[in-house]
Nucleic acid binder design. Structure first.
Lengths: 159, 159
DNA sequence: TGAAAAAATGAATATATTTGCAAAATAAAT
DNA sequence: ATTTATTTTGCAAATATATTCATTTTTTCA
């Protein structure tokens, strides 16, 4: 999926560089072989919850909002992805299966990302029920999960 | 000074209401009897470090940056207020007395509030020197302190 | 599969924000 | 008090960002 790749690239660039305009970000993306228009960026930045903050020296800087930044390149997620076994959709909800004993910490991590799309989660021993917010499609939740836990879908396909 | 009053009003409005454009903020200020142009607001918002963040429902919201907001409802200040013994004005500066050993952490907390009115502080063992920014009256600093540490003046009167 | 529905995108445009510059207000110095 | 320097502000213009609408791409479902 082209869009997911772009969203991830945007997060990465914003973390690593001082980006102050969308056009600037646009060029960086081009440099990485990803191209789109400024209009699309505007939409993507909103979806990612990227804030525009005064940088203290007269300019501005795009920045992942607090809750996103804390999870963005966390070593934790590297440990979480492998424990996820399957994702099943039901009744407009999402059921995530993990290896035994890992549902709770996985759910905790997902909650911690503070994503708007997710109303909340309930975890048992090896199963998480994820409740999307009203108006959010399961497709959107998938995209969102891929942002929180990159590679999660690849992980499942392997099974 | 007209500007300081406006900066304080901006902070207050932004904390209490959902503001998504500068024109919107402009109208709120007019409602409070404070008037300026949108251009001035743009400059003021930058000076205050106010961020513009996606609100999760398709729009945007102006928001005080993390360090300013985080002190707002901090339980820490409940512990700080009781250690403050006295406030004395001198040479346009403000001298704050604490119980022994508590000047440093109190000053740290005051600095952390990121108030525009305060240029900086220097702390010894039980004494803090607070330097107001140019153009800020001691009366304004009192108001500002009461915002940072509600009840501070009552605390002193008891002595 | 193939048709229907939903989501993503670009181009052009509308809207919002920032900035250069001159005037006004405020503070400092004589 | 008057002059001089500094800061603040508004206006108009430049820049940056968001949105509308038509089109294309992707997903869903029969």
């Amino acid at each position: 999926m082209q869009k997911t790749k772009r969203l991830l690239a945007i997060e990465k660039i914003i973390e690593e560089a001082h980006i102050s305009t969308q056009d600037e970000l646009l060029k960086r993306l081009k440099g990485k072989g990803i191209s789109c228009t400024q209009a699309t960026l505007s939409r993507n930045l909103r979806q990612l919850g990227v804030a525009r903050i005064p940088n203290g020296t007269g300019g501005y800087k795009y920045s992942l909002s607090e809750n996103i930044r804390s999870t963005a390149n966390s070593p934790v997620k590297l440990n979480i992805v492998p424990v996820i076994q399957d994702i099943v959709e039901a009744k407009g909800l999402m059921v995530i299966k993990t290896i035994p004993g890992n549902a709770s910490n996985t759910a905790f991590f997902i909650d911690g990302a503070g994503r708007y799309e997710i109303a909340g989660t309930i975890a048992g021993d090896d199963t998480i029920l994820l409740i999307p917010r009203d108006g959010i499609t399961l497709q959107q939740v998938h995209t969102c999960l891929e942002i929180i836990l990159p590679g999660i879908h690849d992980q499942i396909k392997k099974k």
